[in-house]
């Protein structure tokens, strides 16, 4: 069961990774990174239970925290680009 969950999470992470590579807008990338972080938390939890070490959850909590603060920082940054001109990024 945990193995299936882990496989599903890895597939979702690949999808998020593709979105982060392709963009095209800044917001796509932020969302992709945020989602990737969430899936990392889940994968760590699943991996912990899969290998019989639930104390990996400590690490998961911390990743969730880092993810939260990182996204706020990224959004603050966008706000700083006064002249942000919806142009695509490559």
């Amino acid at each position: 069961m945990f193995a299936t969950a882990a496989a599903a999470l890895l597939v979702i992470m690949c999808l998020a990774l593709v979105r982060a590579f392709r963009g095209p807008k800044i917001y796509d990338r932020i969302l992709a990174v945020n989602m990737f972080g969430t899936k990392t938390v889940l994968l760590i939890a699943v991996y912990g239970f899969m290998t019989g070490r639930p104390e990996f959850l400590d690490l998961g909590i911390f990743y969730a925290l880092i993810n939260f603060v990182g996204v706020i920082a990224a959004l603050k940054f966008i706000e700083r680009l006064d002249e942000y001109d919806e142009q695509e990024e490559r």
């Binding site: 990392t40 991996y47 990996f56 990743y63 990224a74």
Partner: peptide, 28 residues
């Protein structure tokens, strides 16, 4: 992707992903 991209912002975002991935490899 980091090498190819031109937008530094996108690169910083990808660096975040890079660390998350390497951290997960350390867990593994």
């Amino acid at each position: 992707a980091v090498v190819k991209l031109q937008s530094l912002f996108a690169i910083v975002m990808l660096f975040g992903i890079y660390s998350l991935l390497s951290a997960m490899i350390f867990v593994a």
